[in-house]
């Protein structure tokens, strides 16, 4: 993958430890301009934590997180609660971190389909409406890097497809990089360049299969949806056991797992010959 000047954000072997526990460890990740990287993984696998390290909100305890200078970021957090004591309507919320001209704010709200809610109190919005407002707010900043933590949660299925289409259009018009977190383990945005699968560490990564080329999927999802989504096939050389431990292809079971623990084929040629190296 491209190294150097075009990378907006780079995580190298990044890990975060909190109260004696590794939330996520050994993450390598870059997002370049014009690129969409999707993070997937089960609940509690460290997706949001990884995004926060990329954003600079959390400092990695191990490894490094680097962002290019003067990076303009748009962030859609997984969860925001607006206290009822706060009088805050959508219009004011759009300018939360930087004043946005009202024309740009209106355009962004129009793109996500909630322009009619500009005067509504933020805390009275429905889940899906608020999600669209959050996305509009991030877009209106015209960011270099968009970090979207489950941006389509609570959005209905047709809305989800429309937002995916919007996100890939945004990438074209702004030429920004996008770090997208998805809760779906198998279906990702078709425009995704790379998928990183997390579960406390990087389990696998790769590119998704385009659905639109398969007649079977087109029948299943419909033409429009098939063009917007893609299927990701996992390629794991280890299994996560219910108790949180990891069983490797070589049969060894360890408490933690990271790429160079000696049980992974890609770095040790004879993966099956090194049993007992791991305590």
């Amino acid at each position: 993958m491209s190294v150097g000047s075009s990378a907006l954000v780079t995580l190298e072997n990044a890990g975060l430890e909190a109260s004696g526990k590794w939330l996520v460890r050994g993450v390598d990740l870059t997002v370049d301009r014009g690129e969409i990287v999707t993070l997937i993984g089960p609940n509690g696998s460290g997706k949001s934590t990884t995004a926060k390290m990329a954003l600079g909100v959390m400092k990695p305890t191990e490894g490094s997180a680097k962002r290019s200078a003067q990076l303009n970021i748009g962030y859609v957090p997984q969860r925001i609660t607006v206290d009822w004591t706060l009088p805050l309507n959508v219009r004011r919320f759009m300018s939360l971190t930087r004043r946005i001209p009202s024309q740009s704010a209106h355009e962004a709200l129009e793109m996500t389909g909630v322009a009619h809610l500009a005067e509504a109190e933020v805390r009275t919005l429905s889940g899906g409406e608020f999600q669209r407002v959050l996305l509009a707010r991030a877009l209106a900043r015209k960011p270099d890097l968009l970090v979207l933590d489950e941006p389509v949660q609570g959005v209905d299925y047709t809305g989800e497809i429309a937002l995916y289409e919007l996100i890939s259009r945004i990438r074209e018009t702004l030429n920004c990089g996008i770090l997208l977190i998805s809760h779906d383990l198998h279906v990702v945005m078709a425009a995704t360049n790379r998928v990183i699968c997390l579960n406390g560490h990087v389990c696998c990564n790769g590119t998704p299969d385009v659905v639109v080329e398969s007649d079977e999927y087109r029948r299943l999802f419909g033409d429009r949806a098939a063009a917007a989504i893609a299927i990701y096939r996992h390629d794991h050389d280890h299994t996560h056991l219910p108790d949180g431990r990891v069983r490797h292809a070589d049969g060894s079971i360890t408490d933690h797992c990271h790429p160079d623990d000696g049980h992974h084929a890609h770095e040790a040629v004879a993966a099956d010959g090194d049993e007992g190296r791991h305590a």
């Binding site: 954003l55 970021i73 925001i80 971190t97």
Partner: peptide, 19 residues
């Protein structure tokens, strides 16, 4: 004011977006 208000609504969002 602007930064303080943003930090009141959501400190992580404010910090991520350069405040």
């Amino acid at each position: 004011w602007h930064g303080l208000f943003a930090a009141t609504v959501n400190p992580e969002l404010a910090e991520a977006e350069g405040m």
